[in-house]
Amino acid sequence: MIPPAFEYARPADVDEAVRALADAGEEAKVLAGGQSLLPLLRLRLAFPELVVDVGRIAELRGVREDGDSLVIGAMTTHHDVIRDPLVRRHAGLLAAATATVADPAVRHRGTLGGSLAHADPAGDLPAVVLAMDGELVAQGPAGRRTIPARQFFVDYLQSALEPDELLVEVRLPKTDGWGFHYEKFHRVAQAWAIVGVAALVRRDNGRVAEARVGLTNMGTTPLRATATEEALAGAGDADAVARAAESAAVATQPSRDTSASPEYRAHLARVLAKRAVLAAAGMG
């Protein structure tokens, strides 16, 4: 319950934050909303020498449009994401999935950027941003770079961010006109997802024209159910969707824990993929 000691910096802007990170090297941790970091510190599972609190950097908060994209500041809280009219209009899947994250008090503090940078495959938002073909913008000493979500999640709790980089914003292609659904399966309301499925479906003449399916907790990183996505193309009824969902667990490596075996997770991925796509396609 007692965090280990650390130095503390509270930069006023992104440049200052990046400098602080660069100076500290590997031993610094970014404190965003703190809803993942503080639990790790309290259980003494992390021992940073420096904590860089980016909570006061105003430029990291807020949502804006940029052409066909929505740009969400990394420090935008879950609470604000859920309620933001632009997110609700152009990235409904993100709003829906964010509403299932943890509980209201945690959502008041926790941030979109923090959740993504934490890169927990059991977190709900990595799979969502992956399904939305999002991009993550990082700033380092050399300036900004944009990392596609497909390349961002490297391994368990490991992102493509360098130690001296700060995640500054998340860019999501607008999904106006797409159906969406996040199907989260957990044993109690506040537990992590055993498996979650994020589905986006674009329909054409009552058939699935294009589908994107993200998987939560089916491997060491969030995954796309590529085989299912391909099989969904042209699906015109519930049976076709169900058949496509049969391949939802292909090329996944789900883990074993007290809540589920890999085999059961694979089964759930198939069932939940079916349900998520049916709901997203309005066929449910």
Binding site: P39, R187, V188, A189, Q190, A191, W192, T258
Partner: peptide, 11 residues
């Protein structure tokens, strides 16, 4: 408490 599932109100 994250692994031992004490039910909350919705459960």
């Amino acid at each position: 408490m994250a692994d031992y599932l004490v039910p909350s109100a919705p459960d």
